[in-house]
Each structure stands twice: as structure tokens, then as C-alpha cells.
């Protein structure tokens, strides 16, 4: 009888712990939804296409921030993905090489590295010499943040390709380069693409590395050499303003950011579950 009771208490305890762990996430999703959707509904399509209104005027939108986020994620991907995929391939193909071992450890450290320090680093080597915040500097910072995710996913995907396919390819007289890029990387494609998407979703939501690099701008000139806004930057700055409509817009922006993030992330999750 006592043992049965203990067993039940233990199961209840596990259940409560699990609920406590997912509660904050559900609460975030819920509050962003509850506070964000009415704003987007109220402002209508203008919310996605308009620019920031004057204080206490109930119109306008966050287009410059959406543009900035897309622009910087795009440029960061152009810079980061080729480098990261090649690094992942190298680490996977030469696992016992000293440089490769060091690279693998560094990638893991980079993944946990405070992203604001990445921002400071890019500011020192890029913003200070050029004399201006810019979308390009922001993109560099995001590329650095993205690197370890893409590289690590690429490495794991490459290593999970069964040895028999590589042996089969070498047995046909193919050179290493061919085997790696035409066989192993192609078989590992799904894992690599997952890494790319996770890296992109991660940096689309980053604020810290952009503060000292992209600067921020409420109006965008469209140029990569000028300071630029981004959705998370706008949220960060808008909630510090003393105007009610700016707080509203920040909630709406948070909802848009969440939709972007889930749009990238949920398909990955589902395709992983299916495979």
C-alpha cells in the first residue's frame, strides 16, 4: 500500500516537473499570440508594409525591420554557409587531424559563446575602421553566430552516412574530392539542410550581435553600407520608448518574428519525426 502511494507520488512529481519545464515556452507562445495578433489585425497589411509611425499615431508598420532581417540573414547565409559546410566536411572527413579536433571543440564553444561578444568583435574589426554601423557589419556578426550550427550539423550528417557508401565509391576508383562532394555530402543532404535552416532561424531572432554592428534604423535606405533595423532590434528599442503605440507595435513585431521562426522550425521538426 505504502509502496503504491510512493510510486504515485513519484509519477505526479515527474509530471509536474515536465509541465513546469514546458510552461514558460507555452506561456511565451501564448502571450505573444494574445498580445500580437490583435495589433496585426488592427493595423492590417500596413503592419507588414508600412514604416514606423509618429508617437501615439495608430498606423504604420515594421517593414524596414522585416527588410533588415531578411537582408542580413541572406547576406549572413551567403558568407557563413559555404564556410561552415566546408568546415563541417573537413572535421567529418579528417576526424583525427589535430586542426580538425581543435575545430570541433571550438565549434562547440562558439555555439555557447555570448553573442554580444561576437557583436563587439565585429564592431572592433569592421565598424570602427569603416566608421559606421551597417547591415554588412550586422551580417558578418550573424554569419559568425550561424557558423557553429551549420558546421556541426554538417559534420554530424556526414558522419552518419554509412561507411558502405563511401567504400563503394572509393572502390569505383573515385578520388576523395568526388566521394566527399558527389556521394557523402549528397547522401547527407537532408541533415545539412536541417543545419542551414536551424542556423538561419537562430540568427533571424538574434538581437545582441546586431546592437553594435547593424546599429538600428527606423527608416531603411536599402543600402548594405548604412545602419539597418531588424525585427528583434526594433522590439528591443521600441519597448524602451514611452509611447503606448510603440509598445503595441513591439508586440506585433514579436508575433511576426515568432511566425517566421516557427515557419522555418516546424517543418524541420516534422521531417525529423517522420524520418
Amino acid at each position: 500500500m505504502l509502496r503504491e502511494l510512493k510510486n504515485r507520488i513519484f509519477i505526479c512529481y515527474l509530471l509536474i516537473s515536465a509541465i513546469l519545464v514546458i510552461f514558460p515556452l507555452l506561456h511565451i507562445l501564448f502571450s505573444v499570440f494574445i498580445n500580437g495578433v490583435p495589433v496585426v489585425m488592427k493595423y492590417g497589411i500596413d503592419f507588414l508594409t508600412g514604416t514606423l509611425p509618429a508617437p501615439n499615431k495608430p498606423d504604420g508598420g515594421i517593414f524596414p525591420a522585416i527588410y533588415g532581417t531578411f537582408l542580413m540573414v541572406f547576406i549572413a547565409s551567403l558568407i557563413g554557409i559555404p564556410l561552415a559546410v566546408l568546415a563541417g566536411v573537413f572535421v567529418a572527413e579528417y576526424p583525427n587531424n589535430t586542426i580538425s579536433k581543435a575545430t570541433r571543440s571550438l565549434l562547440l564553444i562558439m555555439m555557447e559563446f555570448p553573442t554580444i561578444l561576437v557583436g563587439l568583435f565585429v564592431m572592433a574589426i569592421f565598424v570602427v575602421p569603416t566608421g559606421s554601423f551597417s547591415a554588412l557589419a550586422g551580417s558578418f556578426a550573424l554569419a559568425i553566430v550561424m557558423l557553429p550550427y551549420v558546421a556541426t550539423y554538417t559534420e554530424q550528417a556526414m558522419r552518419s552516412v554509412p561507411r558502405q557508401f563511401k567504400e563503394g565509391a572509393y572502390a569505383l576508383g573515385l578520388r576523395k574530392c568526388r566521394v566527399v562532394f558527389s556521394i557523402t555530402l549528397k547522401i547527407a543532404k537532408k541533415g545539412v539542410v536541417t543545419g542551414l535552416l536551424i542556423g538561419m532561424a537562430k540568427v533571424a531572432g538574434e538581437t545582441a550581435p546586431l546592437i553594435f554592428t547593424a546599429g538600428n534604423a527606423w527608416r531603411s535606405t536599402g543600402s548594405v553600407f548604412e545602419p539597418n533595423g531588424a525585427i528583434p532590434l526594433w522590439i528591443y528599442y521600441l519597448i524602451q520608448q514611452p509611447y503606448a503605440n510603440y509598445h503595441e507595435i513591439a508586440w506585433g513585431a514579436a508575433f511576426v518574428l515568432m511566425v517566421f521562426f516557427l515557419a522555418i522550425f516546424l517543418p524541420i521538426r516534422f521531417s525529423m519525426v517522420r524520418s
Binding site: 554509412p162 557508401f165 572502390a171 569505383l172 576508383g173 556521394i183 547522401i187
Partner: peptide
């Protein structure tokens, strides 16, 4: 050498992609 000495493995391993 590997072109002249073909090999077939224990697990059939055509390239799946």
C-alpha cells in the same frame, strides 16, 4: 587500380540518392 579491380560488397550499396 580500383578501376581494374572492381568490388562488390556484403551489403548491397548502390548510391541511394
Amino acid at each position: 587500380l580500383r578501376r581494374e579491380v572492381g568490388m562488390v560488397f556484403q551489403h548491397p550499396n548502390p548510391f541511394p540518392h
